[in-house]
Design a protein around this nucleic acid. Structure first.
Lengths: 313, 313
DNA sequence: TTGAAAGCGCTACCAG
DNA sequence: CTGGTAGCGCTTTCAA
């Protein structure tokens, strides 16, 4: 492997001058620059990136923690991050967490070990207080609405769109709904937002038999349908967690010749379009882009809100 | 920042001994280990990963080149890669290419600069010969069937499933089809496989008006439907590029009250399930897993084939 | 404008 | 079992 020292020796200049040429710095004579560049070409030399990173103390890479890639919430945020990173020299490193707290913590440790310059949590299970302890090692962005002004946060503002959806349902005479959530209200920020909007609109608690958690895929939706029908309660609409799981629950009803309640999806996915389901677009790609800006300190604010849109169909 | 030298000084042992403790190596007395570990705790020390990488000359990360993430071909392969990497210490770095040859080459250069230990091309535009020039810098895996025994290759064996699909269509009296492809046959390995199977089955060239390229999404499918209907040719089935674009083309027919030809999708997506379209599952997650094994030299073979499955519906 | 040399923080070899 | 030390390849400061 040819090193900067080889170039220095062969060109007759010093390592420092070669370094200056490599980094396009000033204070190098035209002839020195030329001579050095020629040797670089000849020896087919390329600087070692790790050595550079070590010297500079940075890695030019951002870690993105995501539980899995089976939900549009994550893939859409990721798309936004990639789009924003595309025009920079930053690398995006995928960090699958499976919602395992130990894994999440190990990624924080890696931030500390300077594996990444910054970290984005598309979702998390680990406590915020622990995350705060790691902020001194680099910017950490959470894709959720946080009250704490000291933690970087990007999120979609869901309430208005949720209220609009409930209003729309009401106009159509639908007043009693089943709610599908990804995770429980106590650990999921999005679940919390959904329930908050529900309470604000109806001024009451939903029947607990009508709230089902752990629903993210078509299959989950199908099983949720089964459960809802079994534990039958009176309801006239279903507020799903995504268009895909909405499609699953719809299929359960169809397969069992049951009359379909009105179903509202989320995420504006292809399945919702195909089945003409009303849905809510949370603009997650934008969330991802902003998260990247914060993680790379291209943005100076700490909290960024993106508006969700209700799409009636 | 506390370094290994601080730990050495504070514990009264040498840098080497501390390093041994850090790396869980032998030849360290229990007391030394204990004393050193205590100091490590006290000073809240953590080894710098970049320095480690530099010393060892490796990065523990694999780059994954992908044109975009809007097609299940890529997301499914990526899922497989992540699943395989999950149980290792390797990091997965996403490298968006947008099919830009210059970008693809820059990633090869990064492999050369030791940014990655290995590279996976989920798809590529750059010439194979150029890739071969970079093999000396680390393992490079292409997710396509390559004749060249010297390039690592993982791919799904599509022909048998394609032939089965054509046979299935024939049994249902469908003999003249329109073909949707992602990219042209000359640059796309999957397009080539499709056309090869077509020719093998029908013993003839398809009508060129019935071959449409650049189709990967629902929207693309919709537009392809428009085009097919406009340049009307006699055909009784459509062989789509994915279930999603199959859904798009189907919708075009429905929107214009045209009688639907038989549509076969690919990739076994949710949309195909919802619309009950026959499809072909290319097992791309498995392809991704194997690609990772090759890129990390966990596998000694150079070519791995994964069988596609036709799913009649 | 140039060069010498001191790091960056760690690993690995060799000697004891 | 332990320590000294020479790297790993580059950047950066300081002096010339």
């Amino acid at each position: 492997m040819t090193t900067i020292r080889d170039i220095a020796r062969e060109s007759g200049y010093s390592v420092s001058t070669v370094s200056r040429v490599l980094n396009n710095k000033h204070h190098v004579s035209a002839e020195a620059r030329l001579a050095i560049q020629q040797v670089i070409e000849q020896l087919d030399y390329v600087p070692n990136n790790i050595a550079r990173d070590l010297s500079k103390g940075r890695t030019e890479s951002i870690g993105v923690v995501l539980p899995h890639t089976n939900h549009p919430y994550f893939t859409q945020i990721l798309d936004g991050i990639l789009a924003a990173a595309f025009v920079t020299d930053y690398r995006i490193v995928l960090l699958p967490s499976d919602y395992d707290i130990l894994r999440e913590q190990s990624y924080l440790e890696q931030l500390r070990c300077k594996v990444f310059d910054g970290l984005i949590f598309t979702s998390r299970r680990i406590e915020l207080e622990i995350i705060k302890n790691y902020q001194k090692y680099g910017p950490i962005v959470c894709c959720e609405k946080l009250e704490d002004a000291n933690v970087l946060s990007v999120y979609s503002v869901r309430e208005p769109a949720y209220l609009e959806a409930f209003q729309w349902l009401k106009k159509r005479g639908k007043n009693q709904g089943a709610i599908l959530l990804s995770r429980g209200e106590e650990i999921s920020a999005t679940a919390k937002a959904t329930m908050k909007a529900y309470r604000a609109f109806y001024q009451s608690e939903p029947d607990e038999k009508l709230v089902i958690t752990g629903v993210t895929t078509y299959q989950d939706g199908y099983e949720a349908g089964e459960k809802l029908v079994r534990d039958y309660e009176s309801f006239d609409y279903i507020f799903a967690n995504s268009d895909d799981d909405a499609a699953g629950i719809r299929q359960y009803y169809l397969d069992h010749d049951l009359s379909l309640p009105l179903i509202v999806g989320q995420e504006n996915q292809l399945s919702g379009k195909l089945l003409k389901l009303p849905t809510i677009d949370h603009q997650l790609s934008k969330v991802g882009q902003h998260a990247f800006f914060l993680a790379t300190k291209q943005s100076t604010t700490t909290h960024i809100a993106v508006m969700s849109h209700f799409i009636p169909r």
